[in-house]
Structure formats: structure tokens, C-alpha cells
Simulated scan of single mutants.
Amino acid sequence: MSVDAAPATVLVFSQRAEVRAAVRTALGSSPAADVGPLRYVECATGDEVVAAVDVGGIDLCLLDGEAQPTGGMGISRQLKNEIADCPQLVVLIARQADRWLAHWSLADATLAYPIDPLTATEVVAGLLRARAQQRPAVRR
């Protein structure tokens, strides 16, 4: 791992604990050598997601598009419209046909569920790199 890679905070949202666990397992502790270690924040409700993002410090949100009663696509659209420095957003979709809904949600990316670890780490690492480039460099 790169010494300069800052830790990243990833919020994982689903009302189902097994979905949250599958995401954490697929991503592991670091998705790429140049991306810092991941710190996970888990949320089981839409209100928890909004509250966590409002506090700040979240770099990326993985949102379950199949969550009930509030789905990840609606939360994604809400966050993009309400948060000035919105974290990168990824929506988990169960069907490829739902990609158009994910586009409507303004998500930065989609991942199919069940989650493929190779694809997930590639997508998440790319989004975290993009997020890091948007932020000013921190002097040591």
C-alpha cells in the first residue's frame, strides 16, 4: 500500500445485514494499492444515511437499490440534490434493466448484486481516486 494513501470512509447502506456484509467482503480492507485503507460505516435506514452524510467525512456511499422502504436510488438522488460536497455514490442493482433508474438517481456508478469482488474493487478504487483528486492536497 502506498504510504501517502489516506484512509477512505465508505458508507454501506442496506436494511439487510447480509448485503452489507457482502459489500464489505467484496471490497476488503483496501481495494487497490494506491487507495488507502477503508473504514466502513454501516446504515440500515435512509435516515441514517442522510444523517451520516450530513455530518461529513464520508468519501463514498454504496447504496442498495433494492432496500425497503427507502431504496438506494431515491437516497442517491436526494444526496446529489442536497449535499454540496456529495460523496461518490454507487447504487447496487439486482437487474441490468434497472440501470436507467440508477442513471435517474444521479449515481456515479452502479454495481450488480450479487457483487463481483473484481468489478467492485475496480469501480470503488476509481471513484475514490477521483474523489481524492477533487480535494486540495494536504501539506505535511
Rank of each mutant, 00 (worst) to 15 (best):
Q78I: 03
V53D: 11
L92Y: 00
L38P: 01
R39Y: 07
P114R: 05
I93Q: 14
L60I: 09
A112M: 15
C61W: 01
K80L: 04
G57H: 05
E122T: 14
Q68K: 14
L38H: 01
L106G: 07
R95P: 00
A107M: 02
A51N: 11
Y40T: 12
E122K: 12
L38W: 00
D64G: 01
E48Q: 15
D108R: 03
R77T: 03
R77M: 07
A44T: 14
V55A: 15
G72Q: 08
A51Y: 10
D98R: 12
C61S: 08
R95N: 12
Q78A: 10
G74C: 09
C86T: 13
V124S: 07
D64L: 04
G126Q: 11
P87W: 06
L111W: 02
S105V: 05
Q68D: 07
I93M: 12
G65Y: 03
W100R: 03
E66M: 10
W100V: 15
G56E: 06
G71H: 00
V41H: 12
D85W: 09
S105L: 01
D116L: 01
L62I: 15
I93K: 02
D85K: 09
D108N: 13
N81K: 11
P37E: 15
A107Q: 02
T110A: 07
E66V: 04
P114C: 06
L38C: 04
W100A: 15
A107T: 03
C61F: 06
I93E: 14
T45V: 09
A109K: 10
A125R: 12
A44E: 15
V53K: 00
I115A: 05
N81P: 00
G46Y: 07
E42K: 01
V124Q: 06
S76I: 02
V49L: 06
R95D: 15
A67H: 04
T121I: 04
I115F: 04
L62R: 05
T110P: 02
R99I: 03
V123A: 07
L63Q: 01
G57Y: 01
V91Q: 10
H103L: 14
A52S: 14
S76G: 10
Y40E: 13
D116S: 07
G126H: 08
P87C: 10
A97V: 08
A125D: 06
A97T: 13
T110F: 08
Y40Q: 12
Y40A: 11
V41E: 09
D64T: 02
L106C: 13
C86Q: 03
M73N: 06
E42T: 13
A112L: 15
G46N: 13
W100N: 10
